[in-house]
Simulated assay, not measured.
Amino acid sequence: MSRRELLELPPSVDLVTAGRALGIGRTKAYELARAEDFPARVLRLGNTYRVVTADLLRLLGVEEDNAA
């Protein structure tokens, strides 16, 4: 994902999108989430996993432009 794509993400993203941003495949992303080892904060909402975008951006070292 490009920096621009990362900055346009909503406040939380699905596990597959977060994995894609990190270069992790779907199966590995779910495996890490189930083991509570995903490198960013994961929210479990019923059977759904959501990753907090702010944590994902911090992990990747992507900072928002404060010019806006």
Rank of each mutant, 00 (worst) to 15 (best):
K28T: 03
L56M: 06
L43W: 01
P11T: 04
R44Y: 04
R3Q: 15
V13P: 00
G25A: 15
S2C: 13
L56T: 01
L9Y: 00
L56A: 06
A33G: 01
G61H: 02
A68P: 10
T53C: 04
V13M: 06
Y30I: 14
N66R: 07
P39V: 06
G46R: 02
A35L: 14
K28V: 05
A68G: 13
A54T: 09
V13G: 00
V52G: 05
D65T: 13
E63A: 13
V13L: 07
L45D: 07
S2F: 13
A68Q: 15
G61K: 03
L45A: 10
N66D: 06
D65H: 07
E5D: 08
R44W: 03
R3N: 11
M1A: 14
A54C: 15
P39K: 01
A54G: 10
A18L: 12
L7Y: 04
L56E: 04
R34Y: 10
G23K: 08
G25E: 12
R50W: 02
E36R: 11
E36C: 10
R44G: 06
N47P: 14
A35K: 12
R58P: 01
F38Q: 11
Y49W: 12
K28I: 04
R26N: 14
A40S: 09
T27K: 03
K28F: 04
L56R: 03
A40Y: 07
A33T: 03
R58I: 05
P11K: 08
A35E: 13
V13H: 01
E31V: 08
V13S: 02
K28E: 14
V16N: 12
R58E: 01
K28W: 04
D14P: 05
L43K: 04
R50K: 02
R26Y: 11
V52E: 08
A35F: 07
S2K: 14
Y30W: 06
V62F: 04
T17P: 06
L6N: 02
L22A: 14
T48P: 03
E64H: 03
A40W: 11
R3T: 13
G61V: 02
L7Q: 09
L22W: 06
L56I: 04
Y30K: 11
L60V: 09
L22P: 04
